[in-house]
Design a protein around this nucleic acid. Structure first.
Lengths: 244, 244
DNA sequence: CGCCCAATTGAGCTTCCTCAAAGCTCGTGG
DNA sequence: CCACGAGCTTTGAGGAAGCTCAATTGGGCG
């Protein structure tokens, strides 16, 4: 992510005019650094900003009364998050730093002005939200209909794809800065069962764990276990209004 | 839903100018009727329209290779659905009629024009998408962290709330036009286990089933089992641009 | 009346959870 | 440099929740 991170993000989908790039640059009103474990925005907390990940991993999650937790999703570099407070007066989920990270801040009122000044960019944001929604749907299916092996396989495949997308140069091995507890909170399992399940996956040659790095030697078979649907990012944005 | 159904929907959140109401009326390019079981839009099918439910119940769902199914969510009167094809060239999920129903059709290109002509309405649509996303998140938590009893309790509470919202005059009893198979597909359970679980809920006095109607006599206790978080629709729309 | 689909019930089994106890790793302070 | 924690991982044993397969019942409709 360069200087104008939001323009870099939207520029992946459509080519932007200089006017548009400048407008996106003005949306960002600052940046913050967080340490692993820091709470960027708490559940039920009001907030007038949304966030764009610049570096590191974060998650958003909900706590249950009994202290258990469900992690809704992971966020990597380039993800826009926290938009629920555009509609609600309190955040629905907590946003937490999984690794040391940096997020850019985007002012809510500036988003409103973007809708007036740059309808095409607003429409593009709308479209990106749809992609995000589809990902949530896929996760819902995973939790509802897959076994422990399937859920973990889906999670690892999804992470591997996202990392490869952000950095196509990697060899497929990636560090996984998640505890088994956190993997359990992502997949709706207990940490103990995550441990056993990952051992089984490793014994079957579906994943390898060396030097703290994960590798997926047989993605097709993993994808089958995971009921994984690769969503090609084949955008269909013909309906977007013209640029300004 | 009256003549200008989209205006009725958005008018719940903000007060609309006549110009805006007219613009929303022009978005709707027709309506269609479906019989129970009819497929409004198939999975992986391209589509250039989105839908607004006028009457009846629908669901959107994904099929797995082995024939199992996960129903992502239910849609009632006033719900806007199918917006994933604003970003993708193929629908992610199928939209199926659960009862005889009627849906209004909204043209995709018209949505694009709305972003240019009525930025406030576009922003409002964006905000409503966030509400929708939060509901998906709550469902994700339910599937990930609740027992069978909890998942079914959450589903019933959510349905009861939605129906009461659409028609505040009811006495709390409602017809549930879902088979136990469908409830299973919603909650990630088998039909057999749905049956047993609902019997237990009935034995505990948490639900009653008479004359085909469901009633929830003890919502607080049900909500506790369900880990149910009532999301007050307390909108915070101060960031919206001015009306036109 | 017969048929079809949904609901119900039983029996046995698999998956995942709970509780508990070791091991491992890495940073910190003596 | 080493001992000590703290947090994470790993393993075991037993139990609970939910699944599968199969059979039966019930209700609506031609």
């Amino acid at each position: 992510m360069g200087e104008n991170c939001l323009a870099d993000l939207l520029g992946r989908s459509v080519s932007l005019s200089q006017t548009e790039r400048d407008a996106l640059g003005r949306l960002v009103i600052g940046a913050r650094q967080y340490r692993r474990g820091a709470v960027v925005r708490g559940e039920r907390q009001p907030s007038s900003e949304i966030y764009l990940v610049q570096r590191g991993w974060l998650h958003c999650s909900l706590l249950l009364e009994d202290g258990r937790r469900q992690i809704i999703r992971l966020h990597f570099c380039g993800d826009l998050l926290g938009a629920d407070t555009l509609a609600l007066d309190e955040a629905a989920d907590a946003i937490v730093a999984l690794t040391d990270c940096e997020v850019a801040l985007i002012d809510r009122d500036a988003i409103g002005r973007l809708f007036v000044d740059h309808p095409r960019l607003a429409a593009l944001l709308f479209a990106l939200q749809q992609i995000d929604r589809v990902m949530l749907m896929d996760r819902l299916v995973s939790l509802g209909r897959s076994s422990a092996q399937g859920r973990i396989a889906a999670l690892l495949l999804w992470i591997a794809n996202r990392l490869a997308q952000n950095d196509p140069a990697t060899d497929g091995r990636f560090a996984l800065p998640l505890t088994q507890e956190e993997i359990g909170d992502l997949t709706g399992l207990t940490a103990v069962h995550v441990n056993r399940t990952m051992r089984v996956l490793a014994e079957q040659g579906l994943i390898t764990r060396e030097a703290g790095k994960i590798y997926l030697p047989d993605k097709p078979r993993l994808a089958q276990i995971a009921n994984f649907v690769e969503r090609k990012a084949r955008f269909d944005l013909g309906w977007l209004p013209p640029a300004r």
